[in-house]
Design a protein around this nucleic acid. Structure first.
Lengths: 235, 235
DNA sequence: AGCAATAGTTATGCTCCATAACTAAGGTGA
DNA sequence: TCACCTTAGTTATGGAGCATAACTATTGCT
């Protein structure tokens, strides 16, 4: 299971891959996605360009690795909120954690929440990682009482869970073992609305669109989630 | 005022600039921002590369032009909603128009609502265009009754308007001649929240993140704005 | 000890941005 | 009307970056 078992060669290989990713991250932090250049990574490692292709089949493959790590990191941040707090409080903590991570790592955030890379096809496990990052939100809404405006969405997401076993599995993994389709629909609707309501403010903030407006984006986000909690009748 | 007055040469120049933008738009539509290449535009026009630099000082300058046009276009779409409808209805129409435009022109949408171009400094009038696109939303909220969770933001935006004359001018231009700082704060808070609540769902949808989830993003957006309208007590 | 896998190399070709230095029009004013 | 100067275009050049091909040298393993 652990790749270090495979001998010293594979060991060194993993180490080099890590070094490459590290340098790529530095380039990402400096100039955004466009600044991640295999040839410059190579130069920075004292190797010559084509050597990189031993470790990553191409640039997208390297970016893929960075994306995976970013999802895991973001997921760890949101999963860090204690589960024994009241739902509303948990929601605030999780959304604040999400925002905090995005502000700390703006370029990595944009890597996963920004423009789709043209031509890039995410590997299958990316979906799982994304769902893991959103999972903790689902738990908050399973036993909520959504108000009128949410019901249409909740109906649609309930149908989605019934249709797709992987989805109901996902929901069950984060909300407990209940099979109730209505509960699943609520959890999914709450999760998706949380996602959308975080994405709006946080993405605008990280992209610099709130610059100079002199209001506190954290307060805005808090207000948005107070409202969302109200909509789901969260205590 | 009109640039066509300056003689046949300037006339031709403008025409060519338009042609260049047109081809650039086609490339944008095909492969996103990264696919807009001056050299290929030139080839497509039957000219040779460096000729482009007569018309745009560099690639960013061309992108700037596309961005300006996109803001104007989006602004026209949201401004198209009749002003004599009830506020809530207007809000739904405007948000739907925003989404529709984003879906019709996904790459142009991402050009203005997507990742910030690294190193790109927007020219001054871009701010005006962005504000114009958001202006019609402000009008909806000027005489609203925001609920508790909105008040902190409204207070901060009121202060913003008092501090920055260009902002209060902007607000007055879209809400009527009132100078009431509280009304300005409400209008701005409503506008910004509308922006954020559109940006979340629409950006996720256009970026393909809702793919395969089997719910209707339009319904999601509608629900979000029903909730927002409720928060501001809109009739 | 020797062989096969692996980490690296140089050489090459493509696309693209951008500048420099030159040429050919063509509109305009004396 | 014609000479001139502006402007649209050209070729030549260079640099960054992705990627492949073909080769070399190391090194772990049997």
């Amino acid at each position: 299971m652990s790749p270090t078992q495979t001998g010293p060669r594979a060991r060194y290989r993993e180490h080099t891959k890590e070094e490459i990713k590290q340098i790529a991250l530095a380039q990402l932090a400096e100039g955004g996605i466009g600044s991640v250049a295999l040839t410059r990574v190579a130069k920075s490692l004292g190797m010559s360009g084509p050597a990189m292709y031993r470790y990553f089949t191409n640039r997208d493959d390297l970016l893929s690795a960075l994306i995976s790590d970013a999802y895991d990191d973001l997921g760890a941040a949101t999963a860090d909120v204690p589960a024994d707090l009241p739902p509303r409080e948990r929601l605030h903590r999780m959304s604040a954690a999400y925002r905090a991570w995005a502000r700390e790592e703006p370029h990595r955030y944009l890597l996963i929440a920004g423009d789709p890379l043209p031509g890039y096809q995410a590997p299958a496990d990316t979906l799982l990682r994304a769902r893991a990052a959103l999972g903790p939100f689902l738990a908050v809404f399973a036993s909520s009482r959504p108000s009128e405006h949410v019901l249409p969405l909740a109906r649609q997401t309930a149908a989605w869970a019934l249709r797709d076993p992987a989805v109901s599995e996902w929901v069950r993994g984060y909300t407990g073992a209940s099979e109730d389709p209505e509960a699943a629909g609520r959890a999914l609707a709450g999760g998706i609305l949380s996602w959308a309501r975080m994405h709006g403010p946080v993405n605008l903030e990280v992209s610099g669109h709130f610059e100079g407006m002199g209001f506190d984006p954290g307060a805005l986000l808090h207000g948005e989630f107070e409202a969302l909690a109200d909509q789901f009748g969260l205590p």
